[in-house]
Design a binder for these strands. Sequence first.
DNA 1: TAGTGTGAAGCCATTCACAGCG
DNA 2: CGCTGTGAATGGCTTCACACTA
Lengths: 225, 225
Amino acid sequence: MHTTLPDRVIARLVGYRRLLEQLHGDGVVYVFSHSLAQLCGVTAAQVRRDVMELAMLGNPAKGYRVEELLSRIVAIMDPPHAQKAVLAGAGRLGSALVSYFNEWSPKLKIVGVFDSAPSKIQSVVHGHTCRPLSELSRIVRRQKVDVGIISVPAEAAADVAARMIEAGVKGILNFAPVKFDVPGDVYVEQADLTVAIERVAYMARHCVDRDPRNAEGAASGAVSE
Amino acid sequence: MHTTLPDRVIARLVGYRRLLEQLHGDGVVYVFSHSLAQLCGVTAAQVRRDVMELAMLGNPAKGYRVEELLSRIVAIMDPPHAQKAVLAGAGRLGSALVSYFNEWSPKLKIVGVFDSAPSKIQSVVHGHTCRPLSELSRIVRRQKVDVGIISVPAEAAADVAARMIEAGVKGILNFAPVKFDVPGDVYVEQADLTVAIERVAYMARHCVDRDPRNAEGAASGAVSE
DNA sequence: TAGTGTGAAGCCATTCACAGCG
DNA sequence: CGCTGTGAATGGCTTCACACTA
């Protein structure tokens, strides 16, 4: 198995897992690559490739055992012990993110919310008392936090990132519309909403059919391929 | 020039534009590919390629004219007339998005906010009166909206997307953790925060140096391969 | 001489296509 | 038969390398 899976694969595994949990809950025992593919919006070949990465074998007659596939993905994706994160920037977006991740990423525990504005300090953001940025480093170090979420304005982002990295964070989810360079052992995921919306707006204006396999009839029956 | 630029290019252009605006404001007149590259976190070769897409020429002695480069990017990225968007799902994330886009994407105007919860209807979300989802279609059609933003729960997303598409939206920014299939002339950008955070968490746990140009310090000789 | 412009090469990720098997 | 497993082919994006120019 790869030391670390490519990030595209990780993204798809998250999708598969969601579907598999649902199927498993529904009592489905086996699933074919093409069913899973359809449900996740990828190709069947892609699913088979990804399954190969998991070093798992399916059965030509029945497909893949849902439970087994699910447990392999969980083994890869879920941390052995709960992973901790801090969030910097308790503005509107920041506090929405706190509640979002609290609700939807139970495996990742937010252990600190920080902001520089005196007006925010000590306010309670969805159960977390907001602290001054100066305390970020201490908390990260003491609690061995390895994920940081940045939702501060662009001007402040580089400084916040530097603090996080210096304190030992290894992964950063950055919502600020700037890039900063980081040591090679730190992973930064850009979640730049400005880029996202501009891209959508651009594509919407240039809407030409760029789908090779056009065929509307999603509703029609078999996937004849 | 391409009919429609690849989305990776679009993302970088947004980054260049931000930097160029700043440089232009600072009175800088020319910029070299490697300066811009460094500031945007890409390679110089990449910048030159992208500039080539814009069919623009630089000057080996001085670099690129900031103003010219900026205006070409703006010409491509900015819509001729203000583009309209609707947002479905006025929860915490949704309302944070409304204020975020109001503030940071002045070229895109949100003309409607929708939700299905009776408790939300008629409430005012950052200046927008929240309306029932049943009115989405009418508004989209009447105002010729071509961008939709989805921040409803996963279960409701497919239905909302279908309404938007049926009413004529050509680009969707989807924050719900599901995929839906769409006609080939509709562009969907997944902004799945669950995937983003899981990916960061995974990478943080597997933090190995994956930077090729790490260089000096330790190791022996040149990068032999 | 340092930087641009660009064909060619390299690198991935995805898809194809087909052997093998229940 | 239809589906899995997988080498080979494809295609797109990025980087290299070098002729060219101010």
